[in-house]
Amino acid sequence: MSDIAQMMRAANPVPDAAAALPDVELDALLVLTETRSTDMSIDQMEKAVTQERPPYRRPPWLVAAAAFVAVLFIGVAVWAIGFGDEPEVVDPPPTTQATTTTAAPVDTGALAAIGERLMAAFDTYDTDTVDELMADDAAPIDMFGASTKSDVLALIPWMDATGMRLESPRCEGSEPDQVACTPLQIMRWAAAGGARPLEGTMFLKIEDGRVVAMRYGRPAFGFYHDRFRAFIREADPTAPDRMWFTADNGEPYAILSDESYSLFEQYTEEYWEFLRN
């Protein structure tokens, strides 16, 4: 070999594509593809691509690394945590007591409006409005791994950076002090690979005009774990500690920090363009 380029060509492990897939196998594979396309629903096709992981328990939090504000567990938390298949409420409804029987009628429309305002604030990455609508001691549960109000506020720029959207939410009163909102959840890095949006349900408990508890319910089908792994591998293979880390359970956790926001934004854009082109 006179040079590396020629050596590379000679080292081609499949020098003859036609020989590697003879006519009969080419036709058989087409039949297989056709069968899969008709036998599988769109949801099943998505699962075949994304290879959903089993649900995991609530994620741990990164408490080290002073540079990092918080840790967001992405691997499974977004969709697989918490709720069972049946929707639940944030907290058990309060036991009816004599002292509450004289309570004023609940304006469920007003509660729904608060819920829709909050969801719109998430979708527009409006940290100030989320801050305003959440009580300081609000208790998020299964909210992408956030467990305090400050976590939720730190989550918003990450959503912005990764192009995650909670689109067109509708909220309806589900209990006297609770509303359920059903956003369409869009992740740009997953959508770039053809993944469809997910439907989720967010339950909000509202007191005195502010959200005191929130819980994100499992969507119709799972989190695109493998797509996320593919994304982060593509995005930052040489310095994962700057954007994410792998926890002991083997799942990737996104890191929330000013540095990671900009890295996620940069690589999401590149990933999107790469897959689109």
């Binding site: 499949v14 594509a17 036609a18 590697a20 897939l21 080419l26 594979l29 087409l30 593809t33 056709e34 396309s37 008709t38």
Partner: peptide, 19 residues
């Protein structure tokens, strides 16, 4: 179910994708 557009795409590129 598998439209002709896909079949044409498949016939044109399946071997390269497989390789």
């Amino acid at each position: 179910t598998l439209d002709t557009q896909l079949e044409a795409l498949y016939r044109a590129h399946a071997r390269q994708v497989h390789a």
